[in-house]
Design a protein around this nucleic acid. Structure first.
Lengths: 342, 342
DNA sequence: ATTAGCACTCAATCAATGAGAGTGCTAACA
DNA sequence: TGTTAGCACTCTCATTGATTGAGTGCTAAT
């Protein structure tokens, strides 16, 4: 169902005003503010219609109207124009991205920070696990006479390192050889495809140094567990303190708790995220805890797996700005990643 | 100046009750609650004295008394008994510490988490910069035909890694040789003591591979900048949402902002921290923003430099518990560190 | 179909009131 | 002289009632 032009205009005016002020919008005030060519009474009639259709609601009889979640949905689906980054924002983004970038996680952190800063909502970036990347090189560096540092390098430049114990009798050269043997066997293998039997063969081959091998295998095992999970970067969680709908401390606490804890945040995201910007409004969210929040999420391509980037804010959200910004940053991430980090 | 026994007892009762309830404490209620052998009227007289001395104050005439900051100070200095961890808490701590510890920063994170969990205040751990540690090993691992991974291992097991660009003509063996040359020159040198002239000599020695050398030098430079700063781990910032004194959103926001931002947190800490547990109450803090918070901090010995661990909470704080817990965990960190990570 | 006019509704604000908690003071008591 | 009971007094907090004002819905006129 689609609205006639005048109804659309009124709905949009109400949405803009309400998002701006967080107050119910009256017929008189929108006529004045957007100097419409019709009278307040006419607007009232249209508003009554829109309410009947479910796009507006009234907190109480003598208040103005506020957009319902259905109203926001209609706006997002049928009327919204995404508002992309303006020049000064692009400029800021470029400056942020060009400052001496160390690691990939650094880029993600900065893009997330930028997103929350521009939209004034909490932002999150989800980086998929790296199980699809490949082993590249394995090194064992002696540290003391009983310990060594195990280094694992993969093709996406992510590196795992861990202390291992070694018998004092093993020399630095031997450790190097063992590292090379591992590199030979594992190089090019995807992390999730380690074959037990390959490792077993290796264990046979180097049976005079079985203790070292076992230490290495154990360490690799633990590292694999550690990087099986996707990682989550959250920025600007405190932005919700500015939203009047969260002046209630209990609500605030519930939301902030979610925004502080990686695991909880992952749980509230929609299961399927495409590369398109995806918006879920209030009750459309599966998770009970955020039925009064909206999500704007897009997927990006991270070494063959889908990462996610987005913002979370009140239902009364500037969807146009949020959607545009998320879209732009999704593209940036894709771009940076396609330049291949290595 | 020291208080007589009865005044002490009354002051302590008031502090305990006030810390517990956040409400002014009346004469009648403390006689009942702590079944004192004296009448409410007597207590009233003593309270009037304590108020005159500055240890108590009255929000308004017909309310009970609350401890003043001076009162808390007197309590902390002259009466407080630190409350150490009980058995179940020690048990929990051990379980937390023994779960498969990966890196040193992991230990710090867990200890901080434990601290905030036990005290119900926000906790922080400051880990000094590692400029005192020594280079141990430098490796250059080829990644693609134009890039390589530079690995720097130090004696505290902290490792820096960074992508560098290399000319396509340089072979893996050459990279290895260059790494070894660096290792030879820098091994055993403290991070802060890198001599420019040593590096210059190295640059001469390997002058046919000057491009690689320059990449490495640049990367090391950047890495050095990155680890010049101490790092900060904050846990349980949201605990202050439970404190009734922060029901005011503005206050809340000011405090949470500090607790979210490493840099800000560092600024509010007292300049000199000894190994002893150090308590600053309300106005004793130098930073304007936390004049209504208290800090309980202790130093610990981190590879020759002073790290800090502590909690931050309302002036109405369970100092006895906080001080005991901070002291215990300070000791734990010292212990773990003295077992030498390598 | 649109608009002006008007009666009506309801939340928000403010002042007045009363209850309750707690004090300070006085006088009696040990 | 220190302690206690008793009582008047103070001040906050919660409740109530009146007032205000923004905004609506309806009706009648355009």
């Amino acid at each position: 169902m689609t609205l006639d032009k005048r109804k659309s205009q009124i709905l949009e005016s109400i949405i803009r005003d309400y998002v701006d002020t967080a107050e119910p919008v009256g017929s008189r005030s929108i006529v004045k503010k957007h100097n419409l060519k019709i009278s307040a009474a006419t607007v009232r009639n249209e508003m009554a219609d829109l309410e009947e259709m479910g796009y507006l609601e009234q907190p109480h009889t003598s208040a103005g109207r506020i957009p319902s979640q259905v109203g926001f949905r209609y706006y997002v689906d049928c009327m919204m124009q995404k508002e992309t980054l303006d020049d000064s924002e692009l400029d800021l983004l470029n400056r942020i991205l060009n400052e001496n970038i160390g690691e990939w996680s650094d880029v993600v952190g900065r893009v997330g920070g930028f997103l929350s800063q521009i939209t004034n909502y909490a932002s999150f970036v989800i980086v998929p696990s790296i199980k699809l990347s490949e082993f590249k090189n394995i090194q064992i560096i002696p540290m003391s006479d009983r310990t060594a540092m195990l280094l694992v390098v993969t093709d996406v430049g992510v590196l795992m390192h861990r202390k291992i114990d070694v018998p004092p009798a093993v020399s630095a050269e031997e450790l190097q050889l063992i590292g090379r043997a591992f590199t030979r066997v594992l190089s090019g293998t995807k992390l999730e495809e380690i074959r037990r039997n390959e490792l077993k063969a290796l264990r046979e081959e180097l049976k005079n140094r079985r203790k070292v091998i076992d230490s290495v295998l154990e360490a690799v095992e633990i590292m694999m567990q550690g990087c099986r999970d996707e990682s989550v970067v959250i920025s600007g969680a405190l932005n919700i303190l500015n939203e009047p709908e969260f002046k209630d401390l209990d609500k605030l606490k519930r939301i902030l708790t979610i925004l502080e804890e990686d695991v909880l945040l992952k749980q509230i995201l929609p299961d399927t995220v495409s590369e398109e910007v995806n918006i879920t409004i209030g009750n459309e969210n599966k998770a009970e805890d955020i039925k009064e929040m909206s999500l704007v999420v897009a997927g990006y391509n991270n070494f063959g797996e889908m990462g996610k980037i987005g913002v979370i804010g009140p239902v009364r959200m500037e969807y146009w700005k949020a959607a545009g910004t998320v879209e732009s940053l999704r593209n940036i991430l894709d771009q940076v990643l396609n330049k291949k980090y290595f």
